[in-house]
Design a protein around this nucleic acid. Structure first.
Lengths: 99, 99
DNA sequence: TAGTTTAACTTTGCGCTACAAAGTACTTTT
DNA sequence: AAAAGTACTTTGTAGCGCAAAGTTAAACTA
């Protein structure tokens, strides 16, 4: 049996980061507040997980003003998409393995 | 968007426990040493993860002697199978979600 | 214009987790 | 008698996850 466990990405082990990525993969751009609501977590917690994904360059941040309000949106980077897809492939193989 | 994140099982968040379960799901009974080799981790680490799965009754342990050697084998319980399948369902839904 | 609110953080602090390494118990092999 | 094998348990450390509180800057509010 090949060891697909090694191919799982540590960055996506946490459920919240898994959630962030799965949302960003199917939405071009998502706001901080939207993510916060979807995931139902505290803003601090979200910020720290996003920061982790930003640091490894899986997620891009865009800060702007919409009207008078600050607005932060996130997108997944090319590297992030690749890494996430590889993670899903590894997951799939791991779980379908029947040696 | 329904929050499938909540349906993910904390017990399976760790990659090693995910690996243990995925192996036990498709093999009736697996030895300690086999698991250790397949997962390529230290025996202490494996023992502690197995202990966690045992404690919540997702895994059964059987100790016996084969010839002169002690032999410990593990099987997944009914509850373990159910929990793992539910976890996989949640994963699938989370990742396929396109709202 | 002082005080409150909103958005998006950052910092703090604590409890929990993961892991390697070392120690243990019992047995077998040398 | 000593070494090795099986399956742990214990120890110690570093890191993580999270809520809560603190921060910044701009914007309404009285």
């Amino acid at each position: 049996m090949k060891n697909y466990i090694q191919d799982l990405n540590k960055a996506f082990e946490n459920r919240i980061r898994l959630g962030i990525m799965s949302i960003l993969m199917v939405n071009d751009s998502v706001e901080f507040s939207t993510l916060k609501e979807m995931l139902d977590i505290t803003d601090g917690n979200l910020a720290s997980h996003i920061a982790a994904l930003e640091k490894i360059e899986y997620v891009n941040v865009t800060k702007q003003f919409i009207g008078k309000k600050p607005n932060t949106t996130y997108t997944v980077t090319k590297a992030g998409k690749k890494a996430f897809n590889e993670h899903l492939d590894a997951l799939e193989k791991l779980l379908k393995n029947r040696d």
